[in-house]
């Protein structure tokens, strides 16, 4: 049976990001005019209002800024119940933006604020990967 888990709704602004993850690359939107990095991908540079935006590949290295362990699934697919408890973290990338991702910490120590992580995206299909990190 096909998965009931929600997928991102791809559009011209975000598809490159999800495609990148499917190919094991973590892309960050970068303004071609002022060089500002921003996340999540937006249709304009929030710093200088230029609509000329490109991408840079992140080193994938970051630090946990905050996190939560989900014990009970509400307002999302019931399929996530099979995975509880699972950890979601706000990752501060070395490049200076934050994003949410899953922490893949099977068999490892419990994740904490300040822990170093690296990007290990999970491919869902040929167009979509999801941000996932593991503790270093």
């Amino acid at each position: 049976m096909a998965s009931d888990k929600p997928l991102p709704e791809l559009d011209p602004v975000n598809s490159e990001f999800f495609k990148g993850l499917s190919e094991n690359r973590l892309l960050i939107q970068k303004c071609s005019k002022c060089g500002n990095l921003q996340f999540y991908p937006k249709p304009i540079c929030v710093n200088c209002s230029s609509v000329e935006l490109g991408w840079v590949e992140s080193s994938g290295e970051g630090t946990i800024y905050s996190l939560t362990s989900i014990n009970r699934v509400i307002m999302n697919s019931k399929e996530f119940n099979d995975e509880v408890p699972y950890t979601i973290a706000s990752i501060e990338l070395k490049e200076g933006v934050r994003l949410y991702g899953r922490i893949n910490n099977e068999g490892n120590k419990e994740a904490s604020i300040g822990d170093k992580v690296k990007s290990v995206p999970v491919q869902v299909n040929q167009d979509v990967g999801l941000p996932t990190f593991e503790l270093l």
């Binding site: 888990k5 929600p6 709704e9 699934v73 509400i74 999302n76 996932t132």
Partner: peptide, 12 residues
């Protein structure tokens, strides 16, 4: 929320 939170299992 639809694009960057729900697919990774966040609960709003």
């Amino acid at each position: 929320e639809i694009n960057y939170e729900m697919p990774i299992g966040m609960i709003g």
